[in-house]
Design a protein around this nucleic acid. Structure first.
Lengths: 96, 96
DNA sequence: AAATTAAGTGCGTCATTGGCGTATTTTTGT
DNA sequence: ACAAAAATACGCCAATGACGCACTTAATTT
């Protein structure tokens, strides 16, 4: 766990965030890009109801995200990013 | 992406959720167990500030979670679960 | 022991959440 | 092609989480 590679990784994550944080500070800091929720869901082939369950939100909330009426919170964006990058792996971890 | 194994995985995720959903329905559904936020953070060795950045929340919010004053939302719990299961891999995806 | 760095907190404001009901659209089976 | 079923969309809105600010209080480091 605490090998060098891991530490370097942590460093880079932190540094990246530090850099990004240089600009303005809206009510809620945007650290992860606005995800294409619908596109990411499409990758999985899941319905809104099922995908919402996987994410840990209600169907209603997922709808709002896809319609652009509301925006996923930070953790939600991070989660979507992981699902986008490697759906299979992420779902396994979620389903352990 | 759409091989059988993946579909089976998806099925099981959905079914598990269906089963869980049998009981009461509070304002906000709890689908993932209350995570030991502090313990998970300890695994990474990150400070609150850095870990908060990784999660996509403020230091203040992470503190509230660790102190039990507030509870991570569904997506946050899912994300923590993934980080708990495989910190290295998850951080890589987040840092891509 | 002084200086840094990390953690903890009261207060206040504001956005998100999500159940319920209903309407509309898309998919599926025959 | 058509009806039945499944998936989506959306208004309403009380409850709750998010988090900035401005400190205070540990810990660490030098």
């Amino acid at each position: 766990m605490n090998d060098d590679l891991f530490k370097q990784l942590i460093e880079s994550v932190g540094q990246a965030n530090d850099i990004i944080k240089g600009n303005a500070r809206p009510t809620r800091t945007t650290k992860f890009a606005e995800p294409q929720v619908r596109a990411i869901r499409a990758k999985t082939g899941l319905t809104q109801a099922r995908f919402a369950d996987v994410l840990g939100v209600s169907k209603r909330t997922l709808e709002n995200w896809e319609q652009g009426r509301r925006h996923p919170t930070g953790p939600a964006r991070a989660l979507l990013k992981i699902l986008d990058a490697d759906p299979k792996h992420a779902l396994e971890a979620l389903n352990q």
